[in-house]
Design a binder for these strands. Structure first.
Lengths: 208, 208
DNA sequence: ATTCATATTGATCTAATGATCAATAACTGA
DNA sequence: TCAGTTATTGATCATTAGATCAATATGAAT
């Protein structure tokens, strides 16, 4: 271990520095997992002293919660944008399933799984997790409700169905984290399952 | 904190002591989570010295992996016994879904979630997780294959469908850990989803 | 009884963690 | 130019973690 000799960090606006520290924490979480977001690791990545990181945060628990929150906020925003491009309910639902299961967000999945675990010992994080799960569920409710109104989907309880779909997707992604093998037909099989869930005839959710 | 004055622990057979330590670790994991399985915590619960725990284990990583393994082995065994009582494929599948989603194994679910997270930093644990996921999948394959042969289920790829069902259930249970609210109709909705997954007509999986 | 193997322990080490605080230095406004 | 505010730091604590090892004591074998 050789520690690079450190110059005194340039003095910056609190807002700027705050943002840099937050960015360092996010980058660490996405690269190494939430458990790697420690006082010293964040400080090193941000190029400042541990004491400075502490100066900007009431506690590490809070920084970890904030980091989770920010990462998931971006995730939701991205998928939301994707959905906004489409009108047809079935297409939107297919797009949702497809993008969430395509494996391109493994780093975020790790963050989710670690948040579920760490949330049991970090109340701030647990609150953020609940909050962002609700946010995700709302997005899905929007898609399902839409289809129910147009009659494309059966007359299901959108709220309950959304929780169901969210749970299914989360589980499949967590599974893929550990056993990428068994994850071959996840998209197609999830589509079939959702057809059952929403009372659609087999094949109704066009895989396009 | 007052530490109870400790007598020297009775000298026991290695096998006996090993078993006691393993039991202490299991009890801790089920009660407080895998992260609570530390050298000192296990020693305290087993009524021995940390050094003795270390004496019986090459490393804590190994003990944690072993603990996870044992807990899940019991889980699989219990559900396996439940399945052995039934013959009809649909009934077996319903029983499987029902028992795994009834919330009576929240302690084991916590262990699973923590194992997914900790497995990223504990290779022994990761191996156990993969191993036990495979075991679970095998159990489910058994149920599905059965139904496919009798013609009760459609001609699906049992292996892939089993992974799918396992992922769905795991996700729903993890979700219930954090948001018990949204978990109202999980059994019924999962049943509908599985009907879609296996190419059954709605209602084919009798909820009895 | 004596010997011997080893279960069990106390003491201790090292490496992380989060946190605190007085001291320093850079910017800002007068 | 000077004073005041505060961003930034080095040093240091208190905890907690896993791990090691010489010393002790207990049971079994001779």
């Amino acid at each position: 271990m050789s520690s690079t000799p450190r110059k005194r960090a340039e003095r910056k606006t609190p807002a700027e520095r705050r943002a840099e520290i937050a960015a360092a924490a996010r980058s660490l979480a996405l690269g190494e997992g939430l458990a790697a977001v420690t006082l010293r690791a964040v400080a090193a990545r941000a190029g400042v002293t541990p004491a400075l990181v502490a100066h900007y945060q009431p506690s590490m628990d809070a920084l970890i919660a904030e980091t989770f929150d920010a990462i998931v906020a971006v995730e939701i925003e991205e998928v939301g944008a994707l959905l906004a491009e489409r009108r047809d309910p079935s297409e939107r639902l297919s797009a949702l399933i497809g993008t969430l299961l395509d494996g391109s967000r493994e780093d975020v999945t790790v963050v989710w799984v670690e948040a579920w675990a760490l949330g049991r010992r970090n109340e701030s994080l647990a609150a953020s997790v609940r909050h962002r799960m609700d946010a995700w569920q709302s997005v899905i409710v929007g898609v399902i409700d839409d289809g129910v109104e147009t009659g494309d989907f059966g007359p299901v309880d959108a709220a309950a169905a959304a929780w169901q779909l969210l749970g299914m997707i989360d589980g499949l992604n967590a599974q893929a984290l550990v056993r990428w093998d068994g994850a071959g037909e996840r998209d197609a099989l999830t589509t079939r399952s959702v057809e059952g869930l929403l009372g659609l005839r087999p094949g109704a959710l066009a895989p396009r």
